[in-house]
Nucleic acid binder design. Structure first.
Length: 495
RNA sequence: GCCCCCAUCGUCCAGCGGCCUAGGACACCGCCCUUUCAAGGCGGCGACGGGGGUUCGAAUCCCCUUGGGGGUGCCA
């Protein structure tokens, strides 16, 4: 294909509702769904919902060795947890091998592809030669020397697509604009493995055509592969092509493509760490897509759907910033009605218990005190995972209650601490048992002290750590007897 | 090596030739509020990688350069 009119150019896309639009998210089930893939899924979903289009889920499991059913299930569960519902699928490429093989044979018959019995060592040698010559590997000639026909030794057959040796590979990308590369820089590539399985390029081309995909929205790491997929599609005789939109990559601290080695990137890890799905979705929607000029970055996904426009997607890679995600999660936690927060936190604690989290296991999420404490814990939470730490002082029997060492140090270092504790004991013995009546400011003032100089010690004595939930709420939840017990035992420990 | 993509505060975005002495958010720092810690309020620090053009005028357009990333796999 030479110069001239762009073979894959499409009309500008519409932003009106169009039910004929079909997009797909096509993850490879070789691991947990991670945040990069999730951002791709999200943008496909946003685009689909914005246009009233169909969102297809397709599992690209052409690599049998690395595919595991638990990943296939896990990816779907994670998408559901995030609220990214799909309209069709999941289709499995593993179920469609026959289609790919038929297509491959068609390509061989037409001369667009060729069969090869070359060994990996021979392929490597060809690549080395090509590199030395400053060119790109073409295996056809060598392949013909060995084949066609079944050789006598233990060679096995693979099928290769023969790329053009001149002309320009090109297409128009909604976010990148016109993308072009000389064909003589693109090597022949395998479309059917010696195992008989289809390779990504082939399966991708066939499926997008068969499934009537109109818009392909995916990561920029797939940008170069587009030329190959489009070439297969053209050679197969499929008219037209989808509109392509390549999203900027998500990167880690080193600006390299986000991956496992950058730490927790699996969405399930974020769920287990106490992040809310709506916060994660909201945060991800900010990476590569602008927030409204006026108004908040924190907004319901329905608003993002209304706003969404592929043409406004950014071009440059985005750093996945855990700090900003933390802030976002806190925003969502604070915005929750307390009853909802109690439900979510309770749910999180129960699932944490199943994972063997002792701190979460000790929390009685049905206790009325739990709900009362969450009301004051709410604006202090960054994640649900911090809940057990805040309420642990309440859900332990007195014999196992412990004051953290560094917090006891604070107690010991506090000015006139025994006077303070004794005065507080006297007050607690007799005051009315309401949060307001427990208030200790008058007690401390009566000693001629400023609250801020002694409060930390009291937090430590009652809650086990010198910084925690508001003390009077904590004491109220604990009850008069347990509170007195802790105050007296601290007094005794001080000697 | 070759091909492709990208380039505004530390980070994520705004800016699409004059409204820019470059705006917002996160982070950071300070102050206020305050029973600790938070939350909240107020303020501060902080960027157009470099060089050429084009233009009356460039963060915005073009070229080069530098830097970063991606691809080049019997991974997708």
């Amino acid at each position: 294909m030479g110069d001239g009119p762009l073979p894959y150019t499409r009309a500008p896309m519409t932003h009106e509702t169009d039910p004929t639009i079909r997009v797909r998210f096509a993850p490879s089930p070789t691991g947990f769904l991670h945040v990069g893939g999730t951002r791709t899924a999200l943008f496909n979903w946003l685009f689909a919902r914005h246009h009233g289009a169909t969102f297809v889920l397709r599992i690209e499991d052409t690599d049998r060795d690395r595919t595991r059913e638990e990943w296939v299930d896990g990816i779907q569960a994670t998408l559901r947890w995030l609220g990214l519902d799909w309209d069709e699928g999941p289709y499995r490429q593993g179920d469609r091998l026959g289609r790919y093989l038929d297509a491959a044979e068609q390509l061989v018959a037409s001369g667009a592809a060729y069969e090869s019995w070359l060994t990996e060592a021979e392929l490597d040698a060809e690549r080395q030669t090509a590199k030395t010559d400053g060119g790109v590997p073409r295996f056809h000639e060598r392949a013909m020397e060995i084949g066609p026909g079944l050789p006598s030794d233990d060679r096995s057959r693979s099928i290769w697509f023969r790329t053009p040796t001149s002309g320009t590979a090109e297409f128009d990308d909604v976010v990148r604009g016109h993308v072009a590369a000389p064909w003589d820089t693109i090597a022949d590539f395998m479309i059917v493995r010696s195992s008989g399985d289809a390779v990504f390029y082939l399966a991708n081309a066939v499926d997008d055509a068969d499934m009537g995909i109109t818009h392909v929205i995916r990561g920029e790491d797939l940008l170069d592969s587009t030329h190959r997929v489009l070439a297969i599609r053209a050679a197969l005789g499929h008219p037209g092509a989808p509109v392509y939109a390549h999203l900027p990559l998500l990167v880690g601290h080193d600006r390299a493509k986000l991956s496992k080695r950058h730490g927790a990137v699996a969405v399930e890890d974020f769920r287990d760490a106490g992040y809310l799905p709506e916060a994660l979705v909201n945060y991800l929607s900010l990476l590569g897509f602008p927030a409204p000029a006026e108004g908040s970055e924190v907004r319901p996904v329905t608003e993002v759907v209304t706003d969404f426009d592929l043409g406004r997607v950014n071009h440059s890679p985005a750093f996945f910033d855990h700090d900003k995600l933390d802030w976002m999660n806190g925003e969502y936690l604070r915005a929750l009605p307390v009853s909802e927060l109690v439900a979510r936190a309770g749910c999180w604690c129960r699932s944490a218990t199943a994972r063997g989290d002792a701190a979460a296991a000790s929390v009685d999420v049905d206790a009325p005190e739990f709900a009362a404490l969450l009301g004051v814990a709410q604006k202090r939470l960054v994640t649900l995972a911090e809940v057990p730490g805040f309420v642990a002082f309440l859900f332990c029997d007195e014999s196992s209650f412990r004051i953290a060492d560094d917090s006891w140090d604070v107690v010991v270092a506090t000015e006139r601490v025994t006077d303070v504790i004794e005065a507080v004991i006297v007050h607690v013995e007799t005051c009315a048992w309401t949060v307001e009546a427990i208030s200790l400011q008058p007690v401390i003032a009566a000693l001629g002290l400023k609250p801020r100089t002694v409060m930390s010690a009291l937090y430590a004595v009652v809650e086990g750590r010198h910084s925690g939930l508001p003390l009077f709420d904590a004491m109220h939840a604990l009850g008069r007897d347990r509170t007195l017990g802790r105050l007296r035992s601290a007094r005794a420990r001080l000697g």
